[in-house]
Design a protein around this nucleic acid. Sequence first.
DNA 1: AATTGTAATTAGAATGATTCCAATTAAAAA
DNA 2: TTTTTAATTGGAATCATTCTAATTACAATT
Lengths: 147, 147
Amino acid sequence: MSLNSTAKQSLEDALFVKGLRSTKQREIIYEAVLNSEDHPSADLIYSRVKEDMPGISLATVYNCLETLTDCGLIRQVNFERQPSRFCLATAQSAHHAHAHCKNTGKVFDVVLPAQFFDELNKYLPADFQLEKVDLCLSGKQSLSQKN
Amino acid sequence: MSLNSTAKQSLEDALFVKGLRSTKQREIIYEAVLNSEDHPSADLIYSRVKEDMPGISLATVYNCLETLTDCGLIRQVNFERQPSRFCLATAQSAHHAHAHCKNTGKVFDVVLPAQFFDELNKYLPADFQLEKVDLCLSGKQSLSQKN
DNA sequence: AATTGTAATTAGAATGATTCCAATTAAAAA
DNA sequence: TTTTTAATTGGAATCATTCTAATTACAATT
């Protein structure tokens, strides 16, 4: 599998805006996040990516994930003090919350109306410039479920 | 300074429910959180509490903070991968978000209407039992402000 | 194509918040 | 009291992440 040309282009564009280069490592890590539905940790991304690029180092995975996050291409999701997880930052992902199931350990997206997030500003001090909203939900879903 | 009798009682009650004992250390740490407006980290609580109880260990601070959190007396607040911070879990604190200012490093409460949180359930899978909502806002407020 | 300058990657060491552990101490029950 | 059990303690261990110094890759010039 490999990055399709649209994705590749948006990666290159986003990197270029920040004066950064597109590299094999950044590509393959972007691809790994793009193709993951499960909000993988750096470690998991590392092991997935190593299959295609055995020489890649964990440090590079961390570096690239940080770079991609800074470029707004991916999102870093934190639950309590667990290892960070990563997911694609789509246009509408500003309006995603993340739910963590304590039974399965899985994380899934919860799509919320934009208005939900906009409303937050009403309750913030006037001079507070809101940059990032992290809404993390924890709970349990029945163990019998398929997902 | 010392814990007032109402606070002391609710500490004892909450511990009792879980079959736990009320100890000097748990009291003084509960008191430290109760009297802090600044969402202190374990480390900061440690240094504050040591003034009154020089022999207390950092491990105990961590233990007690965990216990108090489990009892629902205090709340653990995490921003990105920074050290956890703690604040009092008041009845209405279920309806607090936390805002982190990147300029000052300070964390403050943002009180939101209960309805805001209730609405979340609409967007969750029916079988998901929501236990905890962490809403963390990051941004900047003008450096010139007094708070 | 070789050279230069700069950015990215790498392996491994370091960091630092937190947790674990085994021993001691304190509290409650008998 | 004595016994039992829970809590605290200091220090070691953990582990995700970051740092560092050296190497490699890239892009722009010659």
